[in-house]
Simulated scan of single mutants.
Amino acid sequence: MGTGAALALPRGRRRSCELCGGPAQLRCGACRVTYYCDIDHQQADWVSIHEKICQLLIPIRTSFPFFNSEKERKHGMEQLLHRQKHLVDFTHKVAQKFVFEGKHEEAIPAALHSLHFSIDTCGPDSVELVPAYLILAEASTGLGRLTQAEEYLSQAQWIVLKTSDCSNGIQSKLHRNLGLLYAAKGNFEESLYHLATDIYFASCAFGTHDISTSGGYFHMANVFFRQNKMDIADSLYTEVSIRYLVCYPSILCFILNVGEAQQAEASQVLNAILDIREQAPKQQPAKTANVVHALAMLHFLILDFPKTHELGMKAFLITKQLPNQDASEAIHHLLKLIKSKLFYTK
């Protein structure tokens, strides 16, 4: 637990638990401004997000000093809002990364923080709350807590319906989460409807061929795979792989702009497709090589050169067995580039 060791609250002090809102019995010994109902909730919060933001909470949750002028008071309020908005963004990114890594339990405390900070800065009905509700829904779906996921999605859907100028990007994410929920419930027809709608809104927001639309295709492929409609699933998995393989400039921009969370998503998607390709009864070396090549590119862009070399060699060996050598030439070029990078980084 480190410096976040729990302290018992004095008698008569009524506070609410950071995670569940129940009566608090403990508080963080480091920041002394965060409260919990029991040690389990304190440990869950610490592992998820609190260790990273513990000291950042102190200026937000302590009383304002006395201001000598209106100008000072205004400046103090602006500083508070700036800190809160920073925490909204940071906690959301941490929660999103946990979700993409499949760590759904760890994602929930961070997403709850993001939701609470969003409410503090924007109010309870703002569209700015939707991303936090969607992360909470996706994490709950991943944990099999479908009733809880449905409640979070209902909150998000209600806000979106009330917001006349809701962005296409937000609507894309909402429908993707609805698609995941219905897939988890076994309602594949409704799931495919929402995932198709996700792709439509993502295409409107980012463009038809942008990497950002790949998630919708990937989840649709998973639904068809579960229905044993392998030809359709295969074509969609191929579509996702090709998007990552041929779009160097957009992937580079993607990696630079969105950070670790979306890097984790890209890795999750491509590794899942690779597992399916490698475990398929009928092997398709060319398609497997495309996925491995795309993974090698991803690791190259995040400067993980040893992993790039490992994956590049794997892709190269596969393509050497194919009649068409165009792909092996492209991978060979990547390997030469990697060797130079490894030489200069020694």
Rank of each mutant, 00 (worst) to 15 (best):
H333Y: 12
S167M: 03
R226D: 12
P285N: 00
Q155R: 11
N271Y: 02
I211N: 03
A24Q: 01
L112E: 08
S191M: 03
Y36E: 01
D231G: 08
A233T: 02
N290C: 08
R145E: 10
I255G: 04
G22Q: 07
E105Q: 10
A30P: 02
C37G: 01
H299R: 11
L274F: 08
C17V: 11
Q325L: 00
N290W: 13
E101D: 15
G2C: 05
E128A: 07
T3Q: 05
I58A: 10
W46D: 07
A196P: 03
S63Q: 15
D45G: 05
H194Q: 09
G186S: 02
L270D: 01
T345F: 09
E239A: 08
F224L: 13
N271W: 06
A6F: 06
T34Y: 03
H293F: 15
F64K: 06
I242S: 14
F117Y: 08
I199R: 10
A280D: 12
A95V: 14
E106M: 09
T213I: 13
F206E: 11
I119R: 15
G216Y: 03
P306T: 00
S191T: 02
C54V: 01
F67Y: 13
L295W: 01
V130W: 01
A264D: 03
K307G: 02
H113I: 06
K173I: 10
T288F: 01
E151D: 13
E18L: 14
A196L: 05
A156D: 13
P323D: 00
Q263G: 04
